[in-house]
């Protein structure tokens, strides 16, 4: 394994981890393919080194930073999180990463920065799926400032103690464990502090089906399927016998950010 002396985290779950081959072989990453086994096959030549990230917007420090410069000052942690896809399957993934808030603070966001906006690399040469307009590329995501600063939110650089593979969003991706997986944007090239709620990819493509918040919530159904239960992978016949938890089981850490908010309206 590539990482040494990973800090363990009290936020890690003790639940059974989804096997490595499943985490790296079953991926929703439309930049490669809409077929879940496609990303692992089509990403062999993806170049995630060298990599740089552009930091923009409402902050004192902005500019382009190499991946090393972004990561180096921080201690990598292992975070074993539940991952809940909006399609009602879930995994348990041992991520390696850094709290997003620790990185963002270095850029001294201004008080006008209310949201953080993220963008995935836009390069159809490397992302064959981008040759078709399945989504309006580049992939975009965003978080409210307090969500971005929440200690659960991490930027991941690895999983299962190894650097991220391309199909999992190498070399740098977001992990927001209380939200549906599509919020956890992969292969990030841009982070921008913004004043207004940014436009986000799935919300743009289906505003009635995918909200900006996308908090895991068993009581708010997707228009085409219930979110009450999920398939925890691995699973022999894959029955949905796991009950979905509000905020994916992270209510203690995140519920206060949404107190007084109508979660049905702001889904």
């Amino acid at each position: 394994s590539a990482f040494k002396d990973l800090k363990s985290s009290p936020f890690s779950t003790g639940e059974e981890k989804t096997p490595h081959d499943m985490v790296t072989g079953y991926n929703n990453f439309y930049e490669f393919s809409t077929d879940k086994t496609g990303p692992a096959k089509l990403s062999k030549n993806f170049r995630s080194d060298p990599w740089s990230v552009s930091i923009e917007g409402e902050a004192e420090v902005t500019g382009t930073f190499s991946l090393e410069d972004l990561i180096k000052p921080h201690t990598l942690e292992e975070r074993i999180y539940r991952l809940r896809c909006v399609e009602a399957w879930s995994m348990v993934v041992p991520w390696v990463g850094i709290p997003l808030g620790d990185i963002l603070k270095r850029f001294k966001p201004l008080s006008s920065a209310k949201y953080v906006y993220f963008e995935t690399l836009n390069d159809p040469e490397q992302f064959p799926g981008q040759k078709r307009q399945v989504l309006d590329w580049p992939y975009r995501e965003g978080l409210r400032m307090d969500e971005a600063m929440n200690p659960l939110t991490i930027l991941a650089t690895g999983l299962y103690n190894d650097p991220l593979l391309a199909q999992n969003g190498a070399p740098l991706r977001l992990v927001v464990p209380w939200k549906y997986g599509f919020k956890s944007i992969k292969s990030i090239v841009k982070i921008k502090f913004v004043k207004e709620m940014p436009e986000t990819s799935w919300n743009m493509s289906g505003p009635k089906e995918y909200g900006f918040y996308a908090n895991v919530n068993p009581k708010v159904a997707h228009p085409r399927w219930s979110q009450k239960r999920e398939v925890r992978l691995p699973s022999l016949f894959g029955s949905k016998n796991t009950k979905t938890q509000l905020f994916n089981g992270y209510a203690d850490q995140v519920a206060s950010m949404y107190s007084g908010m109508n979660l049905r309206k702001y889904f």
Partner: peptide
């Protein structure tokens, strides 16, 4: 796929 465990999400596969 179910027997060999290559089908990650059998529900979806079936």
């Amino acid at each position: 796929g179910i027997y060999m465990r290559t089908l990650v999400n059998p529900l979806e596969g079936i």
